[in-house]
Every structure is written in structure tokens, then in C-alpha cells.
Design a protein around this nucleic acid. Structure first.
Lengths: 337, 337
DNA sequence: CTGAAAGCGCTTACAG
DNA sequence: CTGAAAGCGCTTACAG
């Protein structure tokens, strides 16, 4: 038996209780300064007595505004995204937004559904970390999208949007350059999907580093796989079946690197000794793993803050110039290389 | 210059375009079966042509329903909560809910604000992981709360709510019992706040284990601190200043344990050798840290799934009997003890 | 299936 | 400051 819920106290009822008009009560909840302190107090008192709760949904509907914002990430289990999420929340809460969160797990279909859901909920804008192989349909949809959207972490090259990410190319170049200086000549690039801009840019950095050292590029050392621990482990196993196996691994990110290190250990070998491993992101566990992980810091929280800030700016002024923020990565050398 | 946005296509416009009544169009978006296949197709075609987007906010306002649900956690940077979040999302998306996420960082004021925000956004219900020292005001508020609320992870004993958590007492008892069997007699309990039910239950388990072994309890070995790596490190340092220092540490959770292990390393000692460390939660990094961490598995994802399920049930039937789900923990022995 | 009306809880705009 | 009216985009209920 579904009970009819005790219905909400309305602004109307508050106004009646306080003996003012609905318009006045409305001005007060919105913090207008045009109301005398005396009436303001009286009305606020009535609200407290009646247990009034402002109905932001109704207000937004009427005024065609929005107080929510969507955040779509690919994997909440990746600490990189937890950090990014914290950054986004920090910034947006300041501005009074509430965040609708969605996770795609890198599925295009899921991403599509989430974009729809966000629209249906009238979000004021969306921060999107696109899945690596976004379909043409999705991209077309985003192009026609008429509410503010900011891309973060990965960029869809066909779409002209605000974007914030880091310079993956330079990061990869630093990581691979480091391995070369350590004497490695056969360096695998493990994990990730070649569909994503983040992968392509890392590859460019990888290639630049090899060219600068006068080394040839062996494409058979690029082994794509899921961006997870499991994917890392699997890609390592594949790398070791190579007729001329690599002596070092540059991993798509730290999560992949942890899987790779686990795989190395599983074979009775020692990461950092029998095989060098470098990650990407510098998540917190990178410093506490065994061995500690050499990696490239990608400032997830900062990316989140910037994305939130760009979104807010875009909501305030839909026509402002397009902005791209590219943060500079840093190499953190530890025990695994 | 704020541009007036291109306004939404309304159901009215769709109806006109398809040559049907608004009522019919409304029935179709809601998936009624009372409409002939022919008209249904025609209307869906019009929607596609016009780029119609269902306005769930308006629909919810009119029908006094809600398609959102609030989730309030204490710390998204803790992998335990990331896992819980995944569980919640998995369950609730099946039912078509969208999740509003809030993080309290264990601040009562923040929690209070988040509860208000959720109410103002007309959520259909809330899953709350209460902060450890929720104020009396907050508790009173929750008691009078008239929308479904599920408590997870921590329980406010004064509030009669659905709850899902694990049996912390048994978990702690297993962990401490393990340390005793390893020969430890002075075991510190590090991190967490004695205000929280999760802490109190762990303490009870700790005490039971000692009593069973015929050992005395030394309250000076209970060292409270923040539930973070930093808090863990600080509590370890305090423990080592003890005139009769402990030889083992039972940590409030894995995060604290990582900090404790870091602290041990910083002193030039080796965790697992010079001092045994046991955590709680079994987050993913527990298996890859150095040394790998002995810990108690607390099934975060499962907790999230159960909480979501309880909430859904409660929304469907506000009067159903109160339910408490207590999962049984498991001890995972690794290198740190 | 249609059509006209009312209403969810708010904001807006305007005359007083 | 008030009061009356209209409207945001839907759903509901009802007579036909």
C-alpha cells in the first residue's frame, strides 16, 4: 500500500503564516536585499516553524535555470578519477551546484545513455571524460548539444569544446626518455586503447623519445588492453611471449602498471630489477606499492578544478571564447625503474 | 551578455507535429501500452525529427515523484567508498535512478548542508554514511526526516533506520586474535574516532579477543586520529613514544594502515618484521603494498548494493519493516603480520 | 484515442 | 512592499 506522503510545505503557506504576500516570501528565499530586516526575520521564523524546504526543482523549472551539473567519468575505481572528482566537487560546491555523477566504464552505449539522462534532468552543463572509442553517433550528438559541455582528460578531436587535460606527449616523452637513459632499448607500451587521444598522444611522446635517441620504433611492442590491473597483467604476458621481448614497460597509467608489476611478480621476477616499469598519473598508491612506482604526475585534482571552473564560466557566458588548458606533467622517479 | 538559450522542444510541439493530442504524446513517452503501434511510431518519429528531450524534472514536479537519489559519503579518496559507490550505482541505475553525490569529509556542518541540498532537489531518498560525530541537531533532523533514508557503514544508534554494514566487532576480533596467535601482547588500536559506531564496535572486538586470551586491556594503546594516511602516520608516532610501546598495530582501516606502515618505514624499520600491522577493508591496494597488508575484508561493493536495494524497497513501500543487514567479514592474512 | 481544464511549487512582471 | 495573473513542461482525471 503506497501511502500518500505528507506533502511539502509551500511558499504560499509560509507567506500566509507570516502574513506577507507570496511574492515577498519568494524574494526572501532568494536573498533579495529589498526587504526590510523586520519582515525578513518574521518570514524566516515562519519557515523554521513550518519546516519549510525550498523547492529548487520547481524554482529551476520556472526560471529556466539549473542548479545541477553532470560529471561523466570512465572509471570511479581508478584513483585518478576519484581525485578529479574531488577537484570538481570543490569548485562547483562553491558556486552552489550539485553534481550528478555517472560512470561509463568506457562503454559508448553507457555514455550515450548517461548523456540523455543528464539532459532529461536539466543539468546546467556537463563535464565529460569521453570513452576511448566514442561512436560517430555520439560525437555528432555532442556537436549539436546545446548546453555547456567541457571535455576533460581525453579530447574528441572532431568536437570544438573547452578542454582541460595534461600534455600526455611530453609526459610520455619524459617517461620513455628516462627508461632510455637507464639503458633500455626495447620498451613496450602497454595498455589503453589506440582510439583515444590520450593513447595517441602518449604514443607520439614515446616515438619522439626514441627518435631523439636514434632508436627504431617497433610497433609490435605497442600492446593495447583494458585500462585496469587485469588489462595490465594480460598485456605484460603478451609482451613476454614476444620473440624479442622488451626489457622495460611504459604503461598507459598507474593502474595498468600495477597489473604489469603483479604479472612480473607472478612469473617469479622482480619489477625494477628484471624489468623496468613506468606508470602514468602518480596516484597515491604509486608511492606505497612494491617496488614504489616510477610515474608521471598528471595532477588529477587540478584537472577537476579547472574543468569545473571552465564549466562555470561557460554557463555564465555561453558565448565566451573556447579555452583549452593543458597542464605540464612531472616525472617522479622511484623504485620500479 | 547572457543569451537566451534556444528553448526546449515541448511535448506540446511534438503532439502538434504528429497530429495527436498532448495526452496521447504523454502516454507514449511514459511507455503506455494503450496506444496503437501506428500512432506510437508516428509520435516517436516526430520526437526524433524535432530533437525532443523528455523533461523529467517537470514530470517529477507534476507527479510528485522523484528519479534521483542522494548518496552522502565521508571520503571519496578512500577506495572503500569508491567501491561502495560502484555498488550503489550498479543497483540504482537498474531502477532508473540518477545519483546526486556529496562528500562530507567527516564534517558535521558539511553533512547538514548536504542533507538540505538533497531535500531541496527533491531526491526520492538518501543513502547516508554518517560522519563520526554527528551533532545532536543533525540527528534530530534525521529523526524527523520524512523521506526514505538508509544508513550505511556507520549507524547512528539514536535513529531507527534501515542499515547495512558489516560486523565490525567480529572483524576486529578476528584481526586482533590473529595478532595474539602471532605472539603479540601489546597491540595498539590506531586511527578513527571513538564517536563513531564503527570505532566502538571494533573496540569491542579488540577487547573480546584480548579477554579470550586472558590478556589485560591497556586503554593508553587506543590512539584516535583522522581516518587518513596522515592520521595513521601520526598515531603510529604517538604509539612509539609510549613508555612501553606496542609490537603490533590494529588499524581502523587500510588507509590508516598504509600511513602506519609509511611511518614505520620512515623510522628505518620494517613493517611485518619490526612491527606487525593489520588493516580493515581489504581495498585493492592492500594486496600490492609493501609489504602486502593483512586486513579484514569488508565487502564495500556489496554494502553499496544492499544499501541501494534497501532504499529502493523503502521508496516503493515507505512502511515496510525496518531492516538491518550485517555482513560477515573475512580475515586476509598477508605479509604485514 | 481526444480535448479542455487544473495543478505541481515556484518566478516573473506589473500595476498599485 | 502587495496582489492578481500568467507560465515553466509536464501529468492527472474526466467526459466524450
Amino acid at each position: 500500500m503506497k501511502d500518500k506522503k505528507r506533502s511539502r510545505v509551500t511558499l504560499q503557506q509560509v507567506a500566509e503564516h507570516a502574513g506577507v504576500s507570496r511574492a515577498t516570501a519568494s524574494l526572501i528565499v532568494r536573498g533579495s536585499s529589498k526587504i526590510s530586516e523586520k519582515t525578513r526575520k518574521k518570514v524566516l521564523e515562519s519557515m523554521r516553524e513550518l519546516g519549510y524546504v525550498y523547492d529548487r526543482v520547481a524554482a529551476n523549472l520556472r526560471s529556466q535555470r539549473s542548479s545541477t551539473v553532470g560529471l561523466i567519468i570512465t572509471d570511479i575505481a581508478n584513483p585518478f578519477f576519484s581525485e578529479l572528482l574531488i577537484g570538481v566537487h570543490q569548485e562547483l560546491e562553491k558556486e552552489g551546484y550539485t553534481v550528478l555523477l555517472g560512470t561509463t566504464f568506457d562503454s559508448d552505449a553507457k555514455q550515450d545513455r548517461l548523456l540523455s539522462t543528464m539532459l532529461e534532468h536539466r543539468v546546467g552543463g556537463v563535464i565529460l571524460c569521453p570513452v576511448s572509442d566514442s561512436s560517430k553517433e555520439t560525437i555528432d550528438r555532442i556537436k549539436q548539444w546545446d548546453i555547456p559541455i567541457i571535455h576533460a582528460v581525453r579530447e574528441l578531436s572532431e568536437v570544438n569544446c573547452d578542454y582541460v587535460g595534461i600534455d600526455y606527449k611530453i609526459g610520455a616523452q619524459m617517461a620513455v626518455g628516462h627508461l632510455i637513459r637507464k639503458g633500455h632499448r626495447r620498451i613496450a607500451f602497454l595498455g589503453g586503447s589506440s582510439e583515444s587521444s590520450a593513447w595517441q598522444e602518449r604514443k607520439r611522446g614515446y616515438c619522439t623519445a626514441l627518435k631523439q635517441a636514434g632508436l627504431d620504433i617497433d610497433e609490435s611492442l605497442f600492446i593495447e588492453n583494458a585500462v585496469t590491473r587485469e588489462g595490465g597483467k594480460a598485456s605484460l604476458q603478451q609482451a613476454l611471449r614476444h620473440s624479442n621481448p622488451p626489457t622495460a614497460a611504459f604503461c598507459f597509467n598507474d593502474l595498468v602498471a600495477f597489473g604489469v608489476m603483479q604479472g612480473i611478480k607472478d612469473m617469479g621476477l622482480t619489477p625494477g630489477k628484471d624489468m623496468a616499469v613506468v606508470g602514468f598519473d602518480d596516484v597515491q598508491e604509486a608511492s606505497i606499492s612494491t617496488p614504489s612506482l616510477t610515474t608521471v604526475s598528471s595532477f588529477a585534482r587540478l584537472i577537476g578544478q579547472h574543468a569545473a571552473d571552465l564549466l562555470h564560466q561557460r554557463i555564465v557566458n555561453i558565448n565566451r571564447e573556447r579555452q583549452r588548458i593543458i597542464l605540464q606533467p612531472e616525472l617522479v622517479v622511484r623504485g620500479s625503474s
